[in-house]
Design a protein around this nucleic acid. Structure first.
Lengths: 144, 144
DNA sequence: CGGCATCCGAATAGATACTG
DNA sequence: CAGTATCTATTCGGATGCCG
């Protein structure tokens, strides 16, 4: 029961947050949530952050760790993370050159909410899949 | 200092999570995080969830609350949320018909990690903007 | 009021080839 | 090794019009 009460409180907090953002209008440039989601919500960012969570990684290592990502997309993702200050880039002037990427303190701090989200996703994915199956089945039966 | 240690712990947990998901391969259909991010990471889902946080809302109300969303996108977003079981749809056979959407218990539970993410976004957005400005400025100066 | 169908331009991302 | 450049296929989303 306590968690229901907490959920209600949270929903009020979210609703209030929505109100605040609404007043400042939701212009993508100024809304923090839209900005953050635009970044971590894309196809690869979250996987790259996770791959960097344990220790710094070199470009080629990341390329092999993150499944199916292309060099083009990995470069772009890393550049955007670097631009936002979540990741730092260190070039070692060896031959052949090697470049290491690591999470900044800011990037590390982002792992907290992202981990919470990951936990929720893991805990509720089965339920969601079941709901999808029911929904799709319902549609399928009414159609033919 | 304690929070640094916690951050390290979290990063290990994330790295471990990555390893688990990696083994089961990250196929979009089977990876919980990719599924969840594919949903809440799109342009409108988060805003719709926030608009529904406080109380149930009718379609037309949502259309006015969420800035710049079109009927097409609102319908699509609500359908996907309904399919995943985060939102329930209630039709009232009045004339003209009215349809109410509300968060399910599952949807309510999702607000917790999302709220954490929203807090992080709000707290760190200024830092991120500053980082972007520095980065862009650095690029601008080296170019011409 | 609450949708669905269609069209079309814009944005995304994969494939491929080339470079210091 | 760590990128960059270019081209193209696909996806996304806005606009519009129609319906119960």
């Amino acid at each position: 029961m306590a968690d229901v009460a907490e959920a209600i409180l949270r929903s009020s907090a979210i609703a209030a947050q929505f109100g605040i953002w609404e007043e400042r209008d939701f212009d993508a440039g100024r809304c923090p949530m839209r900005n953050v989601l635009d970044r971590i919500g894309d196809k690869w960012t979250m996987l790259v952050l996770m791959a960097l969570a344990g220790e710094p990684r070199r470009f080629g290592v990341l390329l092999r760790m993150v499944p199916d990502i292309s060099k083009r997309m990995l470069t772009q993702t890393l550049r955007l993370l670097e631009r936002d200050g979540l990741v730092t880039r260190h070039v070692f002037a060896t031959t052949p050159p090697s470049v290491e990427y690591r999470l900044s303190p800011l990037g590390l701090s982002a792992l907290e909410p992202l981990h919470a989200l990951a936990q929720w996703a893991d805990a509720n994915f089965a339920t969601i899949r079941a709901s999808r199956a029911r929904y799709d089945d319902g549609l399928a039966r009414t159609d033919p």
